[in-house]
Computed example of a mutant assay.
Amino acid sequence: MIVNLAFYLFSLILLASAVMVVTARNPVHAVLFLILAFVNAAVLFLLAGAEFLAFILAIVYVGAVAVLFLFVVMMLDVDFAALKEGFQRYAPVGALVALVLFGELCLVVSGWTVLAGAPAARLHPTPDNISNTAALGSLIYTSYLPLFQLSAMVLLVAMIGAIVLTHRERKRSLHQKLSVQHARTPEQTLVMVHAELGAGAAMPPKEKETL
Rank of each mutant, 00 (worst) to 15 (best):
M1D: 14
M1C: 06
V3I: 12
N4G: 10
F7Q: 13
F10V: 03
L14Y: 10
S17L: 04
A18V: 07
V22I: 15
R25D: 14
A30L: 04
F33Q: 10
F38W: 03
L47C: 03
A48T: 00
E51G: 02
A54H: 00
A58N: 03
V60C: 05
A64M: 07
A64P: 01
F69Y: 07
L70I: 00
M74H: 04
D79S: 03
L83W: 05
F87C: 02
F87P: 03
F87I: 14
A91F: 09
A91Y: 09
A91H: 07
P92R: 01
V93T: 12
A95Y: 08
A95W: 06
V100S: 09
L115F: 08
G117N: 00
A118C: 00
A120M: 05
T126G: 04
N129W: 11
N129E: 15
I130G: 04
S131G: 15
A134P: 03
L139F: 12
I140Y: 13
Y141A: 10
S143H: 11
Y144W: 12
Y144R: 14
L145H: 10
Q149R: 14
Q149N: 11
H167L: 15
E169T: 12
R170L: 12
S173Q: 07
S173M: 09
H175C: 12
R184N: 07
Q188D: 06
Q188P: 02
L190Q: 12
M192V: 12
V193S: 06
G198D: 01
A199E: 14
K206N: 08
